[in-house]
Computed example of a mutant assay.
Amino acid sequence: MDILCIGSVLWDIIGRSPSAMRLGSDVPGRITRIPGGVAMNIAITLRRFGLTPGLLTAIGRDPEGDELVADCARLGMVIDHIYRSDDLPTDRYMAVEGANGLIAAIADAHSLEAAGDKILRPLTDALAGWSGPIALDGNLTEQLLAEIAVSPLFAGADLRVAPASPGKAERLLPLLGCANATIYVNLEEANILSKVHSDTAAAAAEALLARGAAHVLVTDGGRACAEGRAGEGVITDTPPPVLVTRVTGAGDTFMAAHLVAEQQGASRTEALRAALRAAADHVSGDIA
């Protein structure tokens, strides 16, 4: 096992239409159900790069949960440490996407939140002393993320952190000052965390560094993306232009690809470019 992915593993129910949509639109399209969630999306990308991720999450002991766990195993992930709940249903995420991007989404991650620190129990048992990379998902509760920020269980890890959505971005505030944490956010989420209304990813990265972050990456759709390190400044690069066919999971793919590039010894510039290329392939539909 090369990395731990901690957070949401659920069913993504995505409706996509090639038509531009607005409030009240009723258009033809396709509806899919696939394994998803921030932790799962990251793990899927890591598998594409040849790494073996282990999952720490909560999945119900219902038929949907049995099917989801079986899919995780089929995809080559370590499922031995998943918390299976007898009384909590398997979580779900539902989104509608049109030619003009994400129209609306609802994340039902209540079971993950209710499970709380039960998903972390392997870190004091079978995985005690883990010092490898950890991908951490902002779907965890604010209280649990605050505990993780000061927990000795995470002090020696290479911690990679992503919010689940702008609505949950503030949950990451306790982790902002962790010296071993890399924070991945989009421009909206960066502004929520920094309390500064920046217009560009570069300015937002500077604001987060000023708030005490050690390492940040800020994306902004098709506009320039920024990577910043405390004491080393901010660099930028622009995503390659592609036809956008989907948006769900793009940020998770970006994070996973950047982590892999850094693990392989890439420079800051090379790692940022590799992450942007992977995210572009994802949104264009070049990656299934």
Rank of each mutant, 00 (worst) to 15 (best):
A169H: 07
A146E: 09
N139G: 05
N180K: 04
L175G: 06
N180C: 01
L145Q: 04
D137Q: 06
G132Y: 00
L173S: 12
G167N: 15
L144G: 11
A181Q: 07
L176A: 09
E142R: 15
R160D: 00
K168W: 03
A181E: 02
G132W: 00
S131E: 11
L153I: 14
A149T: 12
A162H: 01
T141I: 08
G138E: 03
N180G: 02
L175Q: 07
A181D: 00
L144Y: 11
A157H: 06
T141W: 08
A149V: 11
Q143E: 15
L140G: 07
A128L: 13
Q143A: 15
L172G: 04
Q143K: 14
P163V: 04
V161D: 00
E170A: 15
D158S: 14
L172D: 04
G156H: 11
L136Q: 05
A169Q: 06
S131W: 01
A146C: 05
A179R: 08
A169Y: 05
A169E: 05
R160S: 05
V150D: 14
F154N: 02
G132F: 02
A135R: 03
A169F: 07
L172K: 03
F154I: 08
L145G: 05
T141A: 09
V161K: 03
A181T: 06
G177E: 15
L136M: 10
P133V: 02
G167I: 04
A157C: 15
L145P: 00
A162W: 01
V161A: 03
V161T: 03
G156T: 09
K168F: 04
G167A: 14
P152L: 12
D158C: 09
D158M: 10
R160N: 11
L140Q: 09
L175S: 08
G129I: 11
V150I: 15
F154V: 05
N180F: 01
A162N: 05
L172Q: 02
P152H: 12
E142Y: 05
W130I: 04
G138K: 02
L175V: 10
I134H: 04
P166V: 06
E147H: 14
A149F: 09
F154W: 10
L153C: 12
T141F: 06
T141S: 15
A128Q: 14
L144E: 11
P163R: 05
S151T: 13
P166H: 08
D137K: 00
L144A: 13
A155N: 07
P166D: 03
I148M: 11
L144V: 12
R160Q: 12
W130D: 03
A162G: 13
L176D: 06
E142A: 15
Q143C: 07
P152A: 12
C178G: 07
L176E: 08
G132D: 02
A162Y: 01
L144H: 11
A155C: 10
R171T: 08
A162R: 08
P133K: 02
I134W: 01
L144I: 13
V150Y: 09
W130K: 01
S151N: 13
L175P: 02
N139W: 01
D158F: 08
A146G: 14
K168I: 00
L159N: 04
N139I: 09
L136R: 04
A164C: 12
A135K: 01
L144C: 12
A181I: 06
A162F: 01
V150N: 11
P152D: 13
C178R: 15
R160L: 06
G156A: 13
L176Q: 10
A164P: 03
I148W: 06
A181N: 06
L173H: 08
